[in-house]
Design a protein around this nucleic acid. Sequence first.
DNA 1: TATGAATGAGTTTTCATTCAT
DNA 2: TATGAATGAAAACTCATTCAT
Lengths: 213, 213, 213, 213
Amino acid sequence: MTTAQRRARERARRQQEILEAAKEVFFEKGIHRATVDDVAAQAEVSKGTVYLYFQSKESILAHLLLEGLSILLPQLEAAYAPQEPLSADKRLRQLVEAYCQFAHTYPHYLRLLLALDRGRFQERVSAEVYQEILTESTRGLKLVAKAIRQGTEEGVFTADDPLLTAGVLWGALNGALNLMANPVRREMILVEPEAVFDATFELFLRGLQAHNR
Amino acid sequence: MTTAQRRARERARRQQEILEAAKEVFFEKGIHRATVDDVAAQAEVSKGTVYLYFQSKESILAHLLLEGLSILLPQLEAAYAPQEPLSADKRLRQLVEAYCQFAHTYPHYLRLLLALDRGRFQERVSAEVYQEILTESTRGLKLVAKAIRQGTEEGVFTADDPLLTAGVLWGALNGALNLMANPVRREMILVEPEAVFDATFELFLRGLQAHNR
Amino acid sequence: MTTAQRRARERARRQQEILEAAKEVFFEKGIHRATVDDVAAQAEVSKGTVYLYFQSKESILAHLLLEGLSILLPQLEAAYAPQEPLSADKRLRQLVEAYCQFAHTYPHYLRLLLALDRGRFQERVSAEVYQEILTESTRGLKLVAKAIRQGTEEGVFTADDPLLTAGVLWGALNGALNLMANPVRREMILVEPEAVFDATFELFLRGLQAHNR
Amino acid sequence: MTTAQRRARERARRQQEILEAAKEVFFEKGIHRATVDDVAAQAEVSKGTVYLYFQSKESILAHLLLEGLSILLPQLEAAYAPQEPLSADKRLRQLVEAYCQFAHTYPHYLRLLLALDRGRFQERVSAEVYQEILTESTRGLKLVAKAIRQGTEEGVFTADDPLLTAGVLWGALNGALNLMANPVRREMILVEPEAVFDATFELFLRGLQAHNR
DNA sequence: TATGAATGAGTTTTCATTCAT
DNA sequence: TATGAATGAAAACTCATTCAT
């Protein structure tokens, strides 16, 4: 039992070490250019060992993604502050601020989240991991939806389908982030990235509040 | 003279054929997985011929992108309808509908546009092509900004910086499209893609119109 | 007849133009890196035309080589000065000086001559051209041999086989030129190229003159 | 420890095997026409494996060159016979004979040495390997220079700059070898290669000994 | 469990040469 | 005679993944 436990802990630690190395390498060289060799070298293990802990390069990516979500979600939950008596407006604002903060503090994780599309995750990743990514992502979205629902119940927001509206906000914010992540498009807009992010939320909020009409 | 003309036409046609083949292949296998070999095979020419018409794989992509823009832009311009006396509201709505229409009719081009980020275009593509992409993209955005400016001048919209606001709309709509393009996220929202797109615009418009406050 | 003549002249002129272009391109980009396309572009003709006048890239090279020889040989002949009453010593010295001069004035042609080995001339070039290269090269060598023979007849040189001795001189001088053409070896010797060339000849001459044992 | 040692030995052996295969292939097809695929096939390993042991095609060449030098140099050193009391004349003769012997026994390595010019070694090869080539080459030349210096000190040779004179000899001998390596030129001289080599040295030696005048 | 050697298909790109017009 | 589009065989190099030890 004890041995089994130590084994499991050892294994988890090693996996974490490799993940840490992958993070460094992926973020520095870019996901495409970084090779599994690079990851192994950075983790100071052999390439074979990497494959002992992860079934594929994509799988490493998926775990990294999960890690990003595991950072983001507590922050969103804290921002939502379920136990405090807060206005829907404030709640939403705090959620968005938390996301903005996350985008700013962990640009690499953000890039991963935004690029979620890319990899052939579904094919190359174990069903559990894929499921977990889905669950975690949804959790975030549901917090937003909950804040919106609160607003509609309090009569300050107008939204028929809170989950859809949360999706709209989520998409719009990501759209803003995506837009400004691209040099071509940045040349088009000519303001700092944050301005677009903020403007997006303000506009969205105004739309949400415009209940008459 | 006639010979030269025919030559030029032949050349243009062949280039178009290859582009068509590339479109097929890129859209079916995905940009990453499709190879120049695939393109050549699809176009029923040799690989060398492909390189006779395009300087690199990225260049093919860029031309495809340009083609997409050359479809989208006239539609946006028609939607804007400069010569007609239209309300800003209507103009904006028509622009967004045109974009939605485009997204629906040419999902492949859309994917290209949304994926613009990827490639290292700037490095692998002739300066002219890159410039053209930038110019064309900007033209679309400026139409949107113009409609918004008209609204502010007419007192129906509130927007300090029309170009920024246009960027917000553009980003938000793309965000919606992106969101729904991803199976993971589609599973999260549980409505059809168009609904998110429409909801995004309606919310944005309401925000724009909420001039008091 | 006249028409045929003009045709022939036209053809010769065109061939010369292409050769000129090839010279420029080969010497600037290096023989390996220069392509037939480059040559055609420089000559302002189509690639097909190049192949109308030369059977292969190697053939162009061979003709260039021939051109180099056609510059070098008159100079060697002038240096030999058959009609003047000259000492063998002087004659030889003049020949070597002429070669040194040529090496200095036409480094590109020299490179071609020294690299004669490289190409698969014999296979890719018409028998006539190959024969001509051989004949021309031999003519130069024979001049040197003649000067040496004169010296042995006058009793100032010791050389059993003048042609062999001429070959030795020729080889030694080329060896010196080759040696100094290479950066690795230049770092080894640490003097200017000309010094090695001159020293080679002086040593050779002394050896030639040391007739008493 | 033992494992590591065996690994290292295994690795060295494999590298040697590939080098052996490369030698065969390069020497048979010529350096230009031989491909890395050929080398891999000859070594009966995959192409990837070749690149596991050598960073580039040029690098293989460099190692081959180094191998040739590692054969030649001990023979030159033995020929110099530092501990024996020998006349400079004899020493030099032995050095040249050793070189001739090498040229005869290892014509392929010789070809590599003579063709050293070609490749862009400096760019494609690790600095260490390049340095080593330079060092080894220089060592041979210095032996020759030392013998010449001994001769000048003993008053039997006349040479202001022994290193330069050694370069002259080295260049002349290589020139002779080069000359006879080429079919075109061999047809010109009409004697066996060795004769030119020997004649070169004899003439050089006589020049060196002609101290009066 | 850990290693790292081995794989080999796959990638983009080049270029001498041919040939229909 | 001149054109230039088309060819397609190479070529060098990469890298995710496997597997014997």
